[in-house]
């Protein structure tokens, strides 16, 4: 589904992605982990064409996506920070995004699940951070796409919404989707992820299932295992 080959990206003097290769062909939930500044967001953004690569190629469903934009209608993306123009209402924003990709949507169901109905006619500028994130989630999940990319999906969510979100992700997985997630919340990743992709200094340091990671590091939980990976690397 996604084939990333030999991609490089430099910001100024910092080599953020360094000859990175990654192929994801199966369905399921892939967590992209790594310390701050390891290139997680840059990797995701280059899949979406927001970051322009210095070298390398990215193919989705066999077709190169560099300098293209139409392929994006097949991808659902949740940006890291939810911030929208302040004076328009929630329903106007949903309408805009629906207009930009004419496809069937199920936003009504999501609005109900996240309890957003009372906010539909409120201005986006008057919403709290958590509510904005819920709107963000609705915008992402209302389309039926095979590839879903979530950048820090848990930011600002209260426990109830977090449970709803986890359920939603699980359902999408059951429907045979490929889901990429970055997160710093290890317990969340441990709960939802099938496979772990561990990035360090712009390269892939580990890719495999949770169990493979545990046996490699001799640890029993994800937080410890990741810390262990980092320690091994620093020695």
């Amino acid at each position: 589904m996604i084939e990333i080959s030999n991609i490089c990206k430099k910001f100024g003097k910092v080599q953020v992605l360094d000859q990175l290769d990654l192929t994801i062909n199966t369905q399921g939930i892939f967590a992209i982990l790594g310390p701050n500044g390891s290139g997680k967001t840059t990797l995701i953004k280059s899949i979406l064409g927001m970051v322009l690569l210095d070298k390398g190629d990215i193919k989705i469903k066999g077709k190169s996506v560099l300098q293209q934009f139409e392929y994006k209608k097949e991808i659902s993306y949740l940006p890291q920070i939810a911030n929208f123009p302040n004076n328009n209402t929630v329903s106007e924003l949903i309408k805009l995004i629906k207009n930009l990709r004419p496809k069937p949507t199920n936003e009504q169901e999501l609005i109900e699940r996240f309890g957003l109905a009372p906010f539909l006619d409120k201005k986006l500028g008057n919403l709290s951070g958590g509510t904005k994130q819920k709107v963000n989630i609705v915008l992402t999940f209302m389309f039926d796409n095979d590839l879903i990319i979530l950048d820090e999906p848990t930011t600002g969510l209260d426990p109830i919404s977090l449970i709803t979100l986890k359920k939603l992700i699980e359902e999408e997985k059951q429907r045979g989707k490929t889901i990429l997630i970055t997160s710093h919340i290890m317990s969340f990743v441990e709960e939802v992820a099938d496979e772990i992709v561990f990035l360090l200094d712009g390269e892939i340091y580990f890719k495999g299932t949770k169990e493979q990671l545990y046996s490699k590091t001799n640890k029993q939980d994800l937080e410890q295992a990741i810390a262990n990976l980092l320690l091994i690397n620093h020695d």
Binding site: L48, G49, I75, F84, P85, R101
Partner: peptide, 17 residues
């Protein structure tokens, strides 16, 4: 500057930059 994040959202949609 206020619409930085909104631009990111729009960039992930199928429209030309």
């Amino acid at each position: 500057y206020n619409s930085r994040e909104f631009i990111e959202l729009l960039l992930s949609q199928p429209i030309k930059r």
